[in-house]
Design a binder for these strands. Sequence first.
DNA 1: GAAAATTATGAACAGTGTTTAGTATATCGT
DNA 2: ACGATATACTAAACACTGTTCATAATTTTC
Lengths: 213, 213
Amino acid sequence: MLMGVAERKERHKEDLKREILDAAKSLFAEKGLEATSIRAIAEKIEYSPATIYLYYKDKNEIVHALHSEGFKLLVSHFEVLNHISHPFERLKGMGRAYIQFALQNPDIYKLIFNMEEPLKHVANCFEEWDEGDRAFDILLKTVGECQRLNYFNGFDAQQISFVIWSTMHGLCTLRTTGHLSHVAAAKANEQDIDQLMTSIFETFIIVLERLKS
Amino acid sequence: MLMGVAERKERHKEDLKREILDAAKSLFAEKGLEATSIRAIAEKIEYSPATIYLYYKDKNEIVHALHSEGFKLLVSHFEVLNHISHPFERLKGMGRAYIQFALQNPDIYKLIFNMEEPLKHVANCFEEWDEGDRAFDILLKTVGECQRLNYFNGFDAQQISFVIWSTMHGLCTLRTTGHLSHVAAAKANEQDIDQLMTSIFETFIIVLERLKS
DNA sequence: GAAAATTATGAACAGTGTTTAGTATATCGT
DNA sequence: ACGATATACTAAACACTGTTCATAATTTTC
């Protein structure tokens, strides 16, 4: 077999993996995770269901591929903010990026955070969540830099980082599951739900700012 | 038909509903939500799968019954704290109760919060989430009382309530999905995960206390 | 005890993820 | 160019799932 041919086939193979992933992503976004069948993905890319299994071991592997991709996207959103020199301003930017990511990719967000990962594969887990750890490290580092400017005085950087992550994650989760909208509606708060979310975020920022001594 | 007989049958019917619910709850806790089949529930109570459908319309109705029960349990955990006169102490108690509830009933917790409710039934939704709204109202009221003691000065009670809910919910969700453990492990923080969670909670309490003017 | 109403079920339907045996297709050495 | 070989693909089946429905068993009523 010629060298070039092998490459072309390899490329084609990668292309099909991408096609599968894209089809899966769009169907997940449209119908949800559980409601999307392998057969539906296969039909979308005009292949037999069995073909999917030549490119991905199972449905979980597809989910994890999207998981990994989603995380890299989130981290890339963070890295854009590196140019902001003031760490607290950067922290604010990260919060906004986090919210934006959750709102723009609600299904990927749920995929990443709201699902207990299949405990099985250990090796994979490490690889996947390296991204997660990196994201947390960026947060931790930023909080540390803030402390040198007298933010979060007297607090442990890691603890504060966990609190911040919890708050942002909780807010996004309540939003994407619809619970925020529900309670807001019950409180006759008819304003735009995203505006409510933004104002909650801003309140949180003010809370954090008050921790500056 | 005698009057007493009708009552007895009605009681039996209620008993079987309970049996189904208990079987479902234990199986959900053991195997998870999606992994538990109607057939498995039926086998556990030693009835035919079809029988389940004489007592519950669908699997969703079973889930919602547990949902409703779980919420009432949470609210009851809150109401025990009514005797605490100092509102901020009561708020702390609520936080602890919330965490305890999430840790002791992780599957019910996920059921309530981490699932987008089937959008279908409107009437049901209202009933179910009355409990949710009540829980939020209790929080809101407590925050309001705190403000009269100069806590959260200059903040809107509703906004602060949402921030508090977000933080607690985020913390519990990160815990029950295993993400907290993962990142903590990566940070070589080998201490007990529940202890970590408690200390994050305490840090959050200190943050809130700093908002007292 | 017979009739009527209630309660329980076996079997089936349409769907799921996944495996396998077998078929096309493309590449290879000659 | 052709037969052999390796690759890519798929139809069919398996063991599940939630759910329905006609039928059977049981209980209650008269």
